[in-house]
């Protein structure tokens, strides 16, 4: 497996997510598609942290300086933070979707157009 494969996977996931955001009518499905885009970013972040950091670091982690190890882990830490924030975003999103459903009885985003003129 090379970095290219992971980048390709990430780009495909991102595009599928974006397509879902643009075509889905159910607000929850839109939210799920956005989560897919976040996952694409996570794949890229972790792949970069494995492949794109200086090659010397991958030979023997025991011999490298502490700061360098930190750098190797940056991508993985990034992914962890993205997962956490995405969870918070989903929680708030679902809360707002429930509020929308209570006020108008639908979660179809094409029906949520009171102010469009």
């Amino acid at each position: 497996m090379s970095l290219q494969n992971f980048m390709l996977l990430s780009a495909v996931l991102f595009s599928v997510g974006l397509y879902g955001v643009l075509t889905r009518r159910n607000a929850i499905a839109v939210l799920m598609s956005i989560e897919l885009m976040f996952s694409a970013v996570n794949v890229a972040a972790v792949a970069f942290s494995r492949y794109a950091t200086p090659s010397a670091l991958r030979v023997d982690p025991a011999t490298v300086a502490e700061g360098a190890v930190q750098q190797v882990l940056t991508g993985q830490v990034f992914a962890l933070f993205i997962i956490t924030v995405a969870a918070a975003e989903a929680a708030l999103g679902l809360a707002i979707i429930i509020a929308v459903y209570r006020s108008r009885g639908t979660v179809d985003v094409t029906q949520v157009n009171l102010m469009k003129r």
């Binding site: 976040f38 970013v41 993205i82 979707i97 509020a99």
Partner: peptide, 22 residues
């Protein structure tokens, strides 16, 4: 109106976050 504003803000804000993160 208010929930509509909240939904639009949240979904588009999350979408822009995804672009930003990429």
């Amino acid at each position: 109106r208010s929930t509509e504003a909240g939904l639009k803000f949240l979904l588009l804000s999350a979408l822009s976050s995804a672009l930003l993160l990429y």
